[in-house]
């Protein structure tokens, strides 16, 4: 399991650190192209497209420079799909919170994470899972009156 992972990751590795600046080259090109449609010089001054053009060109130039520099550099980067775990979990939290309300979702999340991922004791998990959302509730909902999503069931 370990060896296969590292080989697969190594292959990603060679690509990642050049891939990222290269992506910005593409974005820069998009920005540059779109900037013309926003008008470059209007009423004697820069139009909406002026700064996007500057930004886009800068992105292209330095995107190229950095990508090329990275080709020379042989040190590997450590990309791992693990990095997508937190974002996916948070997206899940948002979706679930629309149903049962955010505070309850957070309680479930905290408890599950600490107990199952971090493998701490039930006591610890439970304690944090209750305390943290409680404090959040007190400050954000009771005091600052932020209308946090209450879900279809209208719960916390």
């Amino acid at each position: 399991m370990q060896k296969n992972d590292s080989i697969r990751i190594e292959r990603e590795v060679i690509e990642m650190k050049r891939f990222i600046p290269a992506v910005f080259i593409l974005i820069g090109i998009y920005w540059t192209v779109m900037s013309f449609s926003y008008g470059l010089w209007i009423r004697g001054g820069p139009g909406g497209g002026f700064l996007p053009l500057v930004a886009g060109i800068l992105a292209i130039i330095f995107g190229v420079v950095v990508t090329m520099a990275e080709f020379k550099d042989k040190t590997p980067t450590n990309f791992t799909f693990k990095a997508f775990l937190p974002p996916l979990i948070l997206l899940g939290i948002i979706v679930v919170s629309q149903l049962i309300g955010i505070i309850i979702t957070l309680v479930i999340y905290i408890f599950s994470w600490i107990r199952f991922y971090e493998k701490e004791s039930y006591l610890k998990s439970g304690l944090v899972a209750v305390l943290c959302p409680a404090v959040i509730y007190a400050i954000f909902v009771m005091w600052l009156k932020v209308p946090l999503p209450q879900g279809i069931l209208g719960l916390l």
Partner: peptide, 22 residues
């Protein structure tokens, strides 16, 4: 050059939205 690339990224992000001229 990385710093300037970063600046360009920030600029591009900032230009999302209503422009001040039109």
């Amino acid at each position: 050059s990385k710093g300037l690339l970063a600046t360009a990224i920030g600029m591009m992000l900032a230009t999302i939205g209503l422009d001040k001229a039109l």
